[in-house]
Design a protein around this nucleic acid. Sequence first.
DNA 1: GACTCAGTACCGACTAGTTGGTACTGTACG
DNA 2: CGTACAGTACCAACTAGTCGGTACTGAGTC
Lengths: 209, 209
Amino acid sequence: MSHTSHPSRTKILDGALHLIRSQGYSGTTIDDLCAAAGLTKGGFFHHFRDKEDLAIAAAGHFAQMAERLFAEAPYRSLPDPLMRLLGYVDFRVALLRGSLPQFTCLLGTLVQEGYQTHPAIREACERHIGAHAAEVAKDIALANDYYLPDAEWSAESLSLHIQAVIQGSFVLAKARNGPEAAIECLGHLRRYLELLFHYPKPEEETHVI
Amino acid sequence: MSHTSHPSRTKILDGALHLIRSQGYSGTTIDDLCAAAGLTKGGFFHHFRDKEDLAIAAAGHFAQMAERLFAEAPYRSLPDPLMRLLGYVDFRVALLRGSLPQFTCLLGTLVQEGYQTHPAIREACERHIGAHAAEVAKDIALANDYYLPDAEWSAESLSLHIQAVIQGSFVLAKARNGPEAAIECLGHLRRYLELLFHYPKPEEETHVI
DNA sequence: GACTCAGTACCGACTAGTTGGTACTGTACG
DNA sequence: CGTACAGTACCAACTAGTCGGTACTGAGTC
């Protein structure tokens, strides 16, 4: 944010991303984080006030990484907003290849665990999820203007639904210990979007993947 | 399961339902559970081998409650399987009225936090979520047979998608500290189902078993 | 019908280890 | 020098789990 992030700080945050996503927030100890970053307690508490401070910073770190990832994704350069929207879903499917702790969402994990006991963490997660959804909502709004000028649902509402499907598919992937079910869920999500926007158009028979 | 559940045991399980859903699994201590049930440590460990044993029992307890709740819900007596399916979604919307720790899913919370560190808990959650999804899938299969005999997706796949939307909407509700967004998500889910099954039918008035 | 005796349900003090966090020290560097 | 950064040592609080003991119940038995 303000000053350029110190390498040690970044190391701790990177470790937190992996550890919290695989063990949860309470399940991750500060010693775990220190070990992962090759530091000792003194170093840790130089960079973070307390554990909650780290969690909030980790949420920000995660959101920043995601922002870059999606901003630079190839689908972003498609000219049609509807194609970008479908491209977003396809891109998320492609992300479901790595190991579970890698593709899972830190924000969802954090908020599910601490929405009551750690209000500040909850607030941070809400903010970052909202920001990401708002990014997606831009394309939805454009597609709406063009294809469905009198849709009865708002762009924001649909973009939140998309986030819900993604978050829920992560839960399913964790429960089933593999991404297959999650991939099928995103398949249904894509079908929903196609049905909503009447894509592909009946007359212009396009070859779809 | 085997012997009739002792009242104290049930008290602990009921407390666990509420506590784990609002504080998470690691965030809930055995002392918390004892206090909620009006017991002491000795009593707790008389009924449960260890904390993980309790979590698995709580998952079963939750699933059993849910099974009863949905089995006795009014929409179950509708004659048309598609109406029952839409009724299920509407019923879930109606459930989103209570406070967050009340309507949230214990299985999702547990699995999100401990899918890696507690394989036995993960497995229990997978089983119970699967069982619930299978129940919903029955109506989907019936509706498919009647309305869409050559659908390209399986009943199981759609029922898992429905579960994903529900789980994801819980995450969203926690992040936003209120059920409004979750309700809208289920609205989109309902619209998807309507589009899939071409409901309501434009021309003919339907009345079938 | 008093008398074991086994089993269930529970208590509460205790322990061994862990946890988040503090205090102090050392060092490199401008 | 002072400031940024990191190591060492430590603590008080907490945590899961143990253990010996208590109260009560019910089934057998003489």
